[in-house]
Amino acid sequence: MIKTENNKAWFLVLPVFLLVAFSAVIPLMTVVNYSVQDILDPNTAFFVGAEWYREVLRDPRLHDSLLRQFIYSFSVLAIEIPLGIGVALMMPTKGRMASLCLILLAIPLLIPWNVVGTIWQIFGRADIGLMGWALNSLGVDYNYAANPGDAWATVLLMDVWHWTSLVALLCYSGLRAIPEAFYQAAEIDRASRWAVFRYIQLPRLKSVLVIAVLLRFMDSFMIYTEPFVLTGGGPGSSTTFLSQTLVTMAIGQFDIGPAAAFSLIYFLIVLLVSWLFFTTITHMDKSK
């Protein structure tokens, strides 16, 4: 669509700008201020310059939890995006069944995050949970509270359970936008199932997949509540992701300065990755 130049449009955007700036800029500035000071208590603070950044950047804890975070986020994307597309392709296209599927799929999205943690905490326990009990009676030695591998797998499974529906719903709506004529043409050409997917469905899904990937990357990168409720970051530090490390530093040890420096570095990382992603996609659209 051709857009007209009109700077008066700023008046329409102004409320949004002010509202978001109020909640975003002031806390961000404060965190920047925290990050250059040693705060002993609310009234005593010393300026320490870039000391916290230097310390945090060389802290192996940052490297570990960053690595764990990247592995986790990429596992989440690698499982949820294909699975979501698959589920969307299998969904009935119209009628009562379609509505029913939509509602059922949306349920996990509408549960408060700590309740999601609680559900899986119960579900995975060997004594009172169906999954833990079933796995153990099948002879699998499963215990998410003691075994790091099991804990990690449970957090991942919980995330898949929780968020694949979002990808599926977005893809489903993308698929509905494809005119029936495209499929008929493909049938006349005797296109294979794969060709239909590759050349008709996938290109149409691109823009919704951008939304899905961006949302899932950003949210999984700062996942906090669900693993906290489920495992509390343990056993050991196997499920201690970035946010968790930050909270332990800021509140547990009251190291606000380093925690602030840490979260700004973290913010820069997410900013860079998202910007690269966003630019690549919008650029691909333009060059077509």
Binding site: I26, T30, N33, V36, Q37
Partner: peptide, 11 residues
Amino acid sequence: WMTWTLPTAIF
């Protein structure tokens, strides 16, 4: 409570 310092203010 925003604990301003001169360098961050300049920034």
